[in-house]
């Protein structure tokens, strides 16, 4: 990702952000609200088109006008803060829909995989539950399984624990940690500093649409070089 800029109308949200995430890495993007973290994340799978700069994901140029955005999104899974499950489908169906309808895969094999994913997020018994019947943490784990069902190369997590209470938060974070441990490339926008410290290979601190500081968590979180990073960490810890 190089020199990425994004404006909503006349309002600049990203003002030249450059960062690199290597395959298999887990990185956390932290920073105050409104600093453009979520926008940055949504630029990666083209949900938000960028104004200038370039983003390359697994060999694909995201802002190439010839790019098929759907092909890109097959490789990049995303999980949202508000889960955004499809309320008219069961947990199992939520997971199966995209592989069956988007990838055109055989329903029986998709179902086997979907059930395996439900087991992985420890929700085997909730396969036939509708989203409205699940707790926030359970819904979020279904959402993670749903994104994983596409066999993405990269997973984006947009403040996925921000709407959860401390206990359910932990279930979700454990799931993500396992995923990271298996070598999935994970990019998280998060306020969970403890999680970032334990799991992240790199931490990026953004403020006012620019990347202020980056480095391994022990450096950025424990010995920040920039005054703005220190300010932010002082406020939240």
């Amino acid at each position: 990702m190089r020199d990425v800029e994004k404006s909503f109308g006349a309002v600049p949200v990203l003002r030249g952000v450059s960062l690199t995430v290597h395959r298999g890495e887990t990185v956390c993007i932290i920073g105050p609200s409104g600093s453009g973290k979520s926008t940055l994340l949504r630029c990666i799978n083209g949900l938000v088109p960028i104004t200038a700069g370039s983003i390359t994901v697994a060999g694909r140029e995201v802002n190439d006008p010839k790019l098929d955005p759907l092909a890109l999104r097959r490789d990049v899974g995303i999980v949202f803060q508000q889960y955004n499950l499809f309320p008219h489908r069961t947990a199992l169906q939520n997971i199966m829909m995209a592989p069956v309808h988007v990838l055109g895969q055989d329903r029986a094999s998709v179902e086997t995989r979907a059930r395996a994913l439900l087991a992985k997020v420890r929700l085997t018994d909730k396969a036939d539950g509708f989203p409205g019947e699940l707790s926030g943490g359970q819904q979020q784990r279904v959402a993670i399984a749903r994104a994983l069902a596409m066999n993405p190369k990269v997973m984006l997590f947009d403040e996925v624990t921000a709407a959860l209470d401390p206990e359910t938060k932990k279930e979700v974070l454990v799931t993500i940690q396992e995923l990271a441990g298996e070598g999935m490339t994970c990019i998280l926008v998060t306020h969970e500093m403890g999680f970032a410290r334990r799991v992240a290979d790199q931490v990026f601190f953004t403020d006012g649409g620019v990347l202020v500081e980056e480095g391994p968590p022990e450096q950025v979180l424990d010995a920040p070089r920039e005054a703005r990073t220190r300010d932010f960490l002082d406020k939240i810890l």
Binding site: P69, G77, F80, F86, H88, A98
Partner: peptide
Amino acid sequence: EPQWSAAAGLAFGRLQTIRLIILPQ
């Protein structure tokens, strides 16, 4: 709107999104 985003994030096309996700609701 998040239903549209979620569908787009899973690489559903626009018409598929309407037919499978938006319309049934």
